[in-house]
Simulated assay, not measured.
Amino acid sequence: MAQAWKCSGLRWVAGGPVLVWDGGRRTALTWGKRVAFGVAEGGGRTCVGARGHACPVRAAVPGRSTGARCEECARLDRAHSVAADTIADDPRPYRVYLAWFGPGMVKVGITAEERGSARLLEQGAVCFSWLGTGPLMAARRTEELLRAALGVPDRIPYVEKRAVRARLPGAAGERAAEITELHGRAVALGGWPESLTPAPCRPVDHVDAFGLEGLPAAVGAVSELVAGGAVGGRLVAAAGPDLHLETGAGSVLVLDTRLMTGWELVAARGEEVTVPVRQFRAPSGVQFGLF
Rank of each mutant, 00 (worst) to 15 (best):
R234H: 11
F101V: 02
E114I: 06
R69E: 01
L235V: 13
G285T: 04
C73H: 11
G102Q: 01
L29Q: 05
S223Y: 05
L255I: 09
M105V: 01
A148T: 13
E122C: 00
E41H: 08
T180E: 15
M137D: 12
G228T: 05
W31A: 14
G102C: 03
G42V: 01
I110W: 04
D22I: 00
T46H: 14
A40W: 07
G52T: 07
A163F: 09
A28K: 11
E72W: 13
E144W: 12
Y158A: 12
V254H: 07
W21F: 05
R258V: 03
L136Q: 02
T180V: 14
A68L: 03
A118S: 14
R162E: 15
V39K: 03
E271G: 04
G248A: 10
A149T: 11
R281A: 09
L245G: 13
R155A: 13
H53V: 10
W5K: 09
R45C: 04
V204Y: 00
E246Q: 08
P153D: 08
K33C: 08
V204F: 01
R155Q: 13
V207P: 05
A2M: 13
H244S: 14
T27M: 13
A172C: 10
D154C: 04
V275Q: 07
C201L: 05
A54K: 13
M137N: 13
V164A: 10
W21T: 01
Q3M: 10
H244A: 15
D154P: 04
L131C: 11
Q3W: 11
C55V: 04
G233V: 10
A218F: 08
C70W: 12
V231P: 12
P169V: 04
S8P: 00
R119L: 02
E71I: 09
L189Q: 11
R269A: 14
D256V: 04
K107Q: 06
R11T: 11
R202M: 06
V231S: 14
W130A: 12
V207C: 06
A2L: 14
P62S: 07
L259F: 05
G32H: 11
H183V: 03
K33Q: 14
V126I: 07
